[in-house]
Design a protein around this nucleic acid. Structure first.
Lengths: 194, 194
DNA sequence: TCAGTTGTGGACTGATTAGTCCATAATAGT
DNA sequence: ACTATTATGGACTAATCAGTCCACAACTGA
């Protein structure tokens, strides 16, 4: 998380959030380890000094980028869940969004980061668990609105999330978007009562 | 792929396949970029000279490890499909195996490798597509034996694979195995006729 | 205008990287 | 035993790595 601007002294020549977007972009394309500090600062359009003064370390910048990405995504699907009056349509919308936004050749930045770093990064691992939990809770709420009992709703939510993440993984592993579309087309199984 | 032993000269002090297992192990635990050549050769129990003489480069060793891992896995599930007379049980067995073998904190080595390298490694990307295809074909064959029409069987196979891969991803992202088990428990949806 | 404070460019550092090279060891064939 | 051939250990290299540091720039408040 970037520090707040001070009351006095030379002002920053960059907006931390915009720089973070640049970091997110390059980390997404290349991964954490494969991104050198020169590439990173070039993508963020700031000097090494400014980078370290504002973000602390490469690792901290990575965590900030992941958090920003995940928080934005969660806010977006919360919006969908709130705006859409039909829970079934909200679910379809959210699952499609997962597979769509993250379905390019570079996959889902959250999944990429967790895959690369989580086994050796307790901080990221913990954030990952929390993120998964809040998404699952949101989906479970939608299933509950469809009439499922609480336990059933949670199970369906987990299954739905697994299906969407599997679609993203298949896409990244080289399946065409047309092939993967099949997965989402069949998601309505999840909406049927047991 | 390791070279064949020569007819004359000093014999190798190691078995290439065993060394490759060591490479697989450390690449699985740490990832490609995060594994230094010192760690790699230590895990393989051979010197730099022997490593380069036999495997050519770090990247080539990685590809060999991925191929070996994926081929072994495919051979295993082929065995299950051939041995099990009930297609439904074969499917359940295979999906459980995917989520089980690859469900530890380090996830699936194939998925990890594809996630880290495929976007910038055409050779791995192509192998990945082929591997996905042969698995999907195998699963589709089982669905066909269950009575599904060819197109339907292919769609179900893709969905089943997505579900299993999603379960692996959820597990790696920090869900407990108990939570993820729910996903596989609900896989029987896939076996029902449309 | 000047002191105090913070931001910035870029040179610098020591560690680490993948990969090379060579002297020597160990074998097979003769 | 000798030659040809291959394997091995480990020193070596040139490049790159993340991170530090400092002289200087740009601002606020007085």
């Amino acid at each position: 998380m970037p520090k707040v601007p001070p009351a006095a002294g030379r002002p920053r020549a960059f907006v931390p959030d915009e720089a973070l977007r640049g970091a997110l972009d390059v980390f997404w394309r290349k991964g954490y380890k494969a991104t050198s500090l020169d590439e990173l600062t070039a993508a963020m359009q700031l000097s090494r000094s400014s980078f370290y003064a504002c973000f602390g370390s490469k690792h901290a910048a990575m965590l900030a980028a992941v958090r920003s990405y995940a928080d934005n995504f969660y806010a977006a699907i919360c919006g969908v869940a709130a705006d859409e009056v039909e829970p079934a349509r909200a679910l379809a919308n959210i699952l499609a969004r997962i597979a769509d936004v993250h379905g390019g050749p570079h996959g889902c930045f959250f999944l990429n980061s967790v895959t690369e770093l989580a086994p050796h990064d307790p901080e990221l691992a913990e954030f990952s668990r929390g993120h998964l939990q809040r998404i699952t809770d949101l989906l479970a709420g939608l299933f509950a609105r469809l009439g499922f009992a609480p336990g059933q709703a949670g199970d369906r939510a987990t299954a739905a999330l697994a299906l969407a993440m599997g679609a993203v993984s298949l896409r990244k592993a080289g399946m065409t978007s047309a092939q993967v579309q099949v997965v989402l087309d069949q998601q309505q199984w999840l909406l049927t009562r047991p």
